[in-house]
Design a binder for these strands. Structure first.
Length: 220
DNA sequence: GACCAGGCACATC
DNA sequence: GATGTGCATGGT
């Protein structure tokens, strides 16, 4: 498995190069983006982030001062705006009630505990927590998403229906615990997932095309 | 107009 | 524990 995972990484990196993830200017913006992109295309998230920046509210203090209604209106383009406004508020409440609203106070928390605390925030699930850990806090955690499952299942490297923690363990136990590797690998999987590995797409031109695969495997 | 997009919580069985 | 459903905008 280790060799296969490294081969896939090499094929993807050689074709697409570094992805420079996460798209976001600050640690806080990365976190906000991670929550807003839940089941939503990044293009829509960009509009919501642009709205927040346009009114100079891309900071914990400014965002925490908004009413839920104001927050929801600003993030409307990202979809699910009412529920996501609550989720952002939940995160901010946790940050202010426990860490004085300072992200730097989270830096000293060990990875296992920080993950548990993030998961305890209502609206932050495994993928969102892990995206925050890897991309905002540079912790060696491998992010799993729908694209990851799709690519792995299509190439017979995981069973259909494999759950989040099993798939995450597959990567983390077979790869060096390297933040940069985890960063690029996940970003590359998203890239190939978008371009070539849609449920009904053909594999023609995919850098993984030469590997054993079943093009009929779509959603996992 | 149908389908999909970088999930998650909750209800029901 | 597994499965189904609501949440919502915007692009293809």
């Amino acid at each position: 498995m280790r060799e296969q995972l490294l081969e896939i990484y090499k094929l993807l990196f050689d074709r697409f190069g570094p992805q420079h993830w996460w798209p976001g200017e600050t640690q806080f913006e990365i976190i906000i983006g991670a929550i807003l992109t839940q089941n939503t295309s990044w293009k829509n998230v960009e509009k919501a982030i642009a709205n927040l920046k346009a009114v100079d509210h891309m900071t914990p203090v400014a965002l925490h001062r908004l009413t839920l209604e104001q927050l929801a209106e600003l993030i409307r383009p990202a979809g699910y705006f009412n529920i996501k406004a609550c989720r952002l508020r939940n995160f901010l409440d946790w940050l202010f009630e426990n860490y004085e609203g300072q992200l730097e106070n989270l830096e000293k928390i060990d990875t296992v505990r920080l993950r548990e605390e993030l998961l305890a925030v209502k609206g932050i699930g495994p993928e969102t927590a892990d995206s925050i850990l890897l991309y905002a806090f540079n912790r060696p955690i491998f992010v799993i998403d729908a694209y990851t499952a799709r690519v792995m299942c299509r190439h017979y490297l995981a069973e259909l229906g494999i759950d989040y923690s099993q798939l995450q363990d597959l990567f983390q136990s077979n790869l060096p615990q390297d933040v940069e590797l985890f960063n690029e690998y996940h970003a590359l999987l998203v890239h190939v997932g978008k371009d070539f590995c849609k449920p009904t797409a053909k594999c023609s031109g995919c850098p993984l095309e030469k590997l054993p695969h079943d093009p009929m495997i779509g959603k996992c």
